[in-house]
């Protein structure tokens, strides 16, 4: 690993793109990392109706990449999980462009919060494999380590010092204390178990306190569901996608009036299944990074850690 003064690095990055600082304030409740790839509102196309001459469709041009400085590992991992949906099968060009252009400077998480449970997912606050550059704040300096080619390029032209053994020792000690502050939820086997639990009665109990607002899904760095809507003006308009939430009844309400997920019970089941059963089945990865944002944002203290513990306790016929 190399090291550099934080101010030097920031000065170097200024002007190389839209610099977004995530390192100073604990970015709560919304994940700026998610919003930088999947904004809450995004223009898909503009159209102009030219009477008999038909319709003119214009695709908006991108604005150029952002440098996200201080992304916590959990959020960088969440972007990797979004890739599985947006870059597989048919590539989503709006997402792909931002993914290609944005540079993620990941900062190891020295002070995990009481709601963090990232270590449940096979990584931790000091995992260095996410984003483009991995950084550790050791007090006087930042340790930096490029993860991708894009990351190496972003560091080009900087004079980096070699990290000393005492720097690395400092990092190790920070890592130990951070990891020690996190409570791991043992979720081994949960995805296989959930497959057999679709019709279980536990969902009604679990969903009882949930009021079906969209807070958890909007703050979640891995939730990506969106709605597509047209906005009409005189002879022109636009089509945009906006964040949507599987917790809302109209999310799945059909024009006929039929709703396959008519109550909060089915919606809660789908949300948990999506993250802990469907995502693993499709991609071999959980759709949750254990950041705890949903726990902090929930107006009624629905705690996903507690829900996972409850689900684990349920006895399921083989």
């Amino acid at each position: 690993m190399k090291k550099i003064e934080k101010e030097k690095l920031l000065k170097h990055l200024e002007g190389k793109g839209d610099l977004v600082r995530l390192d100073e304030a604990r970015q709560d409740p919304l994940s700026a990392t998610k919003s930088s790839h999947l904004p809450r509102e995004e223009l898909l196309l503009l159209f102009r109706l030219n009477g008999d001459k038909g319709v003119e469709i214009r695709v908006p041009e991108g604005k150029g990449g952002k440098i996200l400085f201080g992304v916590p590992p959990c959020e960088a991992r969440a972007v990797d999980l979004l890739d599985l949906t947006f870059l597989k099968d048919r590539i989503d060009p709006y997402y792909e462009r931002k993914r290609r252009e944005n540079v993620l400077f990941v900062l190891a998480c020295n002070k995990p919060r009481s709601t963090c449970f990232c270590t449940s997912f096979g990584y931790g606050p000091f995992s260095g494999k996410y984003g483009d550059v991995f950084m550790v704040d050791i007090g006087d300096n930042l340790l930096v380590d490029p993860v991708t080619e894009k990351g190496s390029k972003a560091l080009e032209g900087l004079e980096l010092e070699e990290a000393t053994p005492s720097d690395l020792e400092k990092m190790e000690s920070l890592k130990r204390s951070a990891e020690g502050a996190i409570t791991t939820v043992n979720i081994e086997g949960i995805s296989e178990k959930l497959k057999k639990m679709f019709l279980d009665e536990i969902w009604a109990d679990l969903a009882f306190k949930c009021v079906n607002c969209g807070a958890c899904t909007y703050v979640c760095p891995t939730c990506y569901c969106f709605d597509i809507q047209d906005v009409e003006r005189t002879n022109w308009g636009y089509r945009e996608r906006v964040w949507d939430s599987c917790m809302f009844p109209i999310y799945s309400l059909e024009t006929s009036g039929h709703n396959p997920r008519p109550t909060g019970v089915e919606r809660m089941r789908n949300r948990i299944m999506h993250k802990f059963s469907y995502y693993p089945e499709l991609y071999g990865e959980y759709g949750c990074v254990g950041c705890g944002r949903c726990i902090r944002a929930c107006p009624v203290n629905f705690d996903i850690r507690e829900a996972l513990e409850t689900l684990k306790e349920v006895e399921v016929a083989a």
């Binding site: 809450r40 009021v211 079906n212 607002c213 969209g214 807070a215 909007y218 964040w243 939430s245 107006p299």
Partner: peptide, 10 residues
Amino acid sequence: CIRCYACREI
């Protein structure tokens, strides 16, 4: 406001 409708649902 992020239109999560927590205020409405609660």
